[in-house]
Design a binder for these strands. Structure first.
Lengths: 65, 65
DNA sequence: TGTCATTAGGGTAATTTGGGAC
DNA sequence: ACTGTCCAAATTACCCTAATGA
C-alpha cells in the first residue's frame, strides 16, 4: 500500500515552515532526523511533505516516517 | 500554489508573552500546566500557540487543552 | 539549453526550554 | 499561589555555496 495516501497533498518546505512559524531549514532538519514524514524527489535532494503528516503534528499526535 | 488552509495560525512564545505582558517562561509554564493550548514542535522543546486559544484566554473564557 | 527562484548542507551564533531553587 | 531569575542543554536561526527543478 502507498505510504502516501491518495488525495494527500504534498507541501513544499516553505509552506510547512510558514505553518509552524519556523525557518524552512528547520523543517528539512526534522525530515533528516525522522521527526516528520517526508518524501524525497527523484533528484535526491529536494523534499515534499504529506499534508497529513503535517496535520498530525499540528494535532499534537506522534509522527514518524 | 501556496495554500495554507489551516485556519488557525500559530503564535510564537515571544508573541504570546508580549500579548499578555509576561515573561515567555511564564507562557511555557501555562502550557506545561495545561492552562493554555499549545503544540510542541517536532524538535521536542519549542512550542507554538494556536491563535484561537490565546484569543479565548484574552476574552476571559475558559481554556483547557 | 539557459535562466532563476527555491532548497539543502555545513558551520556558528542566538534563542528557547526544562527543572530546581530562591 | 504565581511570577521572574539563574543554569546547562537542546533546538533553532542566519551566514554562505552548490544543486534542484520549473
Amino acid at each position: 500500500m502507498p505510504i502516501i495516501p491518495e488525495g494527500d497533498r504534498l507541501l513544499t518546505p516553505a509552506e510547512v515552515a510558514a505553518m509552524f512559524r519556523v525557518d524552512p531549514k528547520t523543517v528539512a532538519r526534522w525530515a533528516r532526523t525522522k521527526r516528520i514524514a517526508a518524501i524525497m524527489l527523484p533528484g535526491g535532494r529536494l523534499r515534499r511533505y504529506p499534508e497529513s503528516a503535517v496535520r498530525r503534528v499540528l494535532n499534537g499526535q506522534a509522527v514518524n516516517v
